[in-house]
C-alpha cells in the first residue's frame, strides 16, 4: 500500500538530521517549506478577523465540492475572551494557527503530519506522540469531523480532523485538516515557559525580538478593549448589518446584467458571515450575551454559514465534478 513507511524514506526517523529551531518564526518557516515540498499551495492569512484557521475560506468553502485541494497557511486568530493582558504564560486573545487542508485526505496523512513534527525538531524517537480521540465540532460553521488531538509528551500540539460535514453539507470527498497551535507548540519545541519571552526572530540577530516585544502591548490594549471598551451598541448593530448584508448578497440573481456572466457572490457573503462570527465573539467577551441568547446567536451565524455553503456549492469552485462516476 502507498502509506507504508518504506515508501516515504524521507520521513523516517534517523533518515534526516533533526535539528532544533531557534525561534518562533523559524518553526513557521520550516512548516511552510515542509508543506510546500509536499505539494500544498502556501496561502497567506485571510485578511479578516477570525477565531480560527478553519474560518479561512480556503478551508470552510474549499472543503466543499469534489475539486481536489491542498493548501497550507498561517492564520492569525482572535479569541477575545482569552485575553489576559499579556500576563498569562500561554493564553492570548490574538495568536497564530498553522493550518493544512488537503482534499481528498491522503491515505498517509498521519505519516505526513509526523514528518512535519520532525521538520520542526520533534523527534518521535525521543518523544511520546499519541493520537487521542477528539471529535471536532464547530456549531457556528455547522461543521463536524472525527479525529484526534495529537499529544507530544502529554501536551496537545495539534488537532487532526477528517471533515464529515461543513455548512450542513456532507463532505465528499473528505478533507483532512491539521491545525497547529503555533505558540504552544513553539514554546514546547524551544523550551520556553512564558510566551512573551519566546524569541520571535533569531536571538542572535542584530535586533533580537521576543514575542513580548511584538505583542505584549497589543495584548494589553485588546484585552481592555475586548472586556471593557468595545461599544456594544455598535457591535450589536454591526452584527445585524453583517447578517442583513450576507442575506442581501446571496439574494442577487446569479446572472450579472452588466458582464452577462454568471457570478454568485459566495465569498463576499461569506465575509459577512465571518464578520458576524467575530462580532458575536466580541459581544460575548463584553459579557452582554446571556446563556439563553448565546445559542440563538450561534444559530444565526450558523444559518449564514449554511447559506454561504449552499451558494458556494452553486459556483464552479464548489460544484461536484460532472463525471462523478470515476
Amino acid at each position: 500500500m502507498s502509506d507504508t513507511p518504506q515508501s516515504r524514506p524521507d520521513l523516517l526517523a534517523g533518515q534526516g538530521a533533526i535539528t532544533t529551531p531557534r525561534s518562533f518564526q523559524e518553526i513557521i518557516l520550516r512548516l511552510q517549506s515542509y508543506w510546500a515540498a509536499r505539494g500544498c499551495a502556501i496561502l497567506q492569512p485571510y485578511d479578516m478577523e477570525v477565531g480560527a484557521g478553519t474560518f479561512h475560506p480556503a478551508t470552510t468553502l474549499r472543503s466543499l465540492g469534489t475539486k481536489p485541494w491542498a493548501a497550507a497557511y498561517v492564520q492569525p486568530s482572535r479569541r477575545p475572551t482569552d485575553g489576559r493582558y499579556g500576563t498569562n504564560p500561554n493564553r492570548l486573545q490574538h495568536y497564530y494557527q498553522y493550518q493544512v487542508i488537503i482534499k481528498p485526505s491522503p491515505p498517509d496523512l498521519q505519516e505526513l503530519y509526523l514528518g512535519s513534527l520532525r521538520a520542526i525538531g520533534l523527534d518521535p524517537a525521543l518523544h511520546d506522540i499519541r493520537f487521542v480521540e477528539d471529535d471536532w465540532e464547530s456549531p457556528t460553521l455547522g461543521a463536524w469531523g472525527l479525529g484526534w488531538e495529537v499529544w507530544c509528551d502529554g501536551m496537545e500540539v495539534s488537532q487532526f480532523t477528517y471533515f464529515q460535514q461543513v455548512g450542513g453539507h456532507d463532505c465528499r470527498p473528505v478533507s483532512g485538516e491539521l491545525t497547529y497551535g503555533l505558540e504552544r507548540l513553539a514554546m514546547y519545541v524551544l523550551g520556553i515557559d512564558h510566551v512573551m519571552t519566546m524569541p520571535f526572530n533569531d536571538p542572535q540577530s542584530p535586533i533580537a525580538l521576543s514575542y513580548g516585544d511584538i505583542f505584549r502591548q497589543t495584548e494589553e490594549e485588546y484585552s481592555r478593549h475586548n472586556f471593557d471598551a468595545a461599544s456594544t451598541d455598535m457591535l450589536f448593530q454591526h452584527f445585524k448589518d453583517a447578517e442583513a448584508e450576507c442575506d442581501r448578497l446571496l439574494g442577487f440573481e446569479p446572472d450579472d446584467p452588466k458582464t452577462k456572466m454568471r457570478i454568485i457572490m459566495a465569498h463576499p457573503a461569506y465575509d459577512q458571515c465571518i464578520k458576524a462570527s467575530h462580532l458575536f465573539n466580541l459581544l460575548d467577551a463584553r459579557g452582554v450575551i446571556s446563556v439563553t441568547e448565546r445559542q440563538a446567536y450561534i444559530g444565526r451565524v450558523r444559518a449564514l454559514a449554511k447559506k454561504c455553503a449552499d451558494a458556494f456549492r452553486m459556483t464552479e469552485a464548489g460544484a461536484d465534478a460532472v463525471d462523478a462516476s470515476v
Binding site: 500561554n90 524517537a125 518523544h127 511520546d128 501536551m155
Partner: peptide, 25 residues
C-alpha cells in the same frame, strides 16, 4: 505515573520532563 507508548534512548527522560511541564501548567 504517566504511561508512555514508547521506549527512548534517554529512558523517557524527555517525555517525563515534558509531561511534568504540562502538569505544572
Amino acid at each position: 505515573v504517566t504511561v508512555a507508548n514508547t521506549v527512548t534512548a534517554d529512558h523517557g527522560e524527555t517525555i517525563l520532563k515534558g509531561n511534568q511541564k504540562v502538569l505544572a501548567a
